[in-house]
Design a protein around this nucleic acid. Structure first.
Lengths: 144, 144
DNA sequence: TAATAAAAAGACCTATATGTCTTTTGTTTT
DNA sequence: AAAACAAAAGACATATAGGTCTTTTTATTA
């Protein structure tokens, strides 16, 4: 399971991408309201994302958050790694640090493919592909 | 990812099952040492497991933990649910409470099958099937 | 039956994730 | 240049997972 912070981060990024289709640059208050997260906590998350160059921001009147032209597509994988590290992709189901094909834990064979599938999903899907699904009405990202 | 408590629980149960093949009934200290977990913390976990009838115990000299004949095979699913609830099987990748096929989040289609596969794994595998793999030398459950 | 062994129970502590508040810094508009 | 605005930064608060310690209960055995 992704952490709450990671979930907020992805939803915020998707919302910013959606607004960018309309030449908009949403601010913190608007984003927090949209993703139904506490404003101050959302601020922390946005700071992590901008610090890691997944997002750009401008201060002052009319400021807000946006994707610069220079930034490439943002994979879910990179968002997850920035927010909570890569252990959900790499670690053994039992937390065995030595778990490997030569010294497999009893779930190694069956859990491995599941981790693989999740990694593939995270690498292939991007903020932009998720936003497109919403734009086309194929998905929603609000709580209600 | 399973919590550390859940990982300890599964490893402890598998060890107890392995010992039961030799008519042994391991005690707390032995179990904690085997799974490389703090003894007092392991005690807490064993209490949760016995309270939920996934395991039996006897106090006093020569006491310890064991599976009674009456107990059916213990699925991983039931251990996970007792230790940390069922949210890892049910919850949306984005934490959207309303996520469903009629109101899907943007990962619903691709993440659903992954959750399904994990649920199937947890329902099919049991402490006993995992212990058999170790007994037959097809897997290990120690850290080193 | 008394001493001892071992699990159960409960109070406590620590680290991390989550969440809040205040001050600082940078940008825009007047 | 001054005022207003909005993100950045950092200190603080709360909840939960993880971990420790002491006391109580129950069983065994000498």
């Amino acid at each position: 399971m992704l952490t709450k912070s990671t979930q907020y981060a992805i939803r915020a990024l998707v919302y910013i991408q959606l607004q960018s289709y309309n030449q908009k640059r949403p601010g913190l208050a608007e984003i927090a309201k949209e993703i139904e997260a506490p404003e101050a906590y959302t601020a922390k998350i946005m700071q992590i994302l901008t610090k890691h160059k997944l997002l750009s921001s401008v201060k002052g009147r009319g400021g807000g958050f946006f994707f610069s032209e220079k930034e490439p597509e943002t994979s879910l994988y990179s968002v997850i790694v920035v927010m909570e590290g890569d252990s959900c992709f790499t670690s053994c189901a039992f937390g065995l640090s030595s778990c490997s094909s030569s010294k497999p834990c009893p779930l190694h064979d069956k859990y491995g493919p599941i981790k693989e599938a999740f990694l593939k999903l995270a690498q292939e899907e991007t903020i932009q592909t998720l936003a497109q699904k919403i734009k086309h009405g194929d998905a929603v990202i609000n709580l209600l």
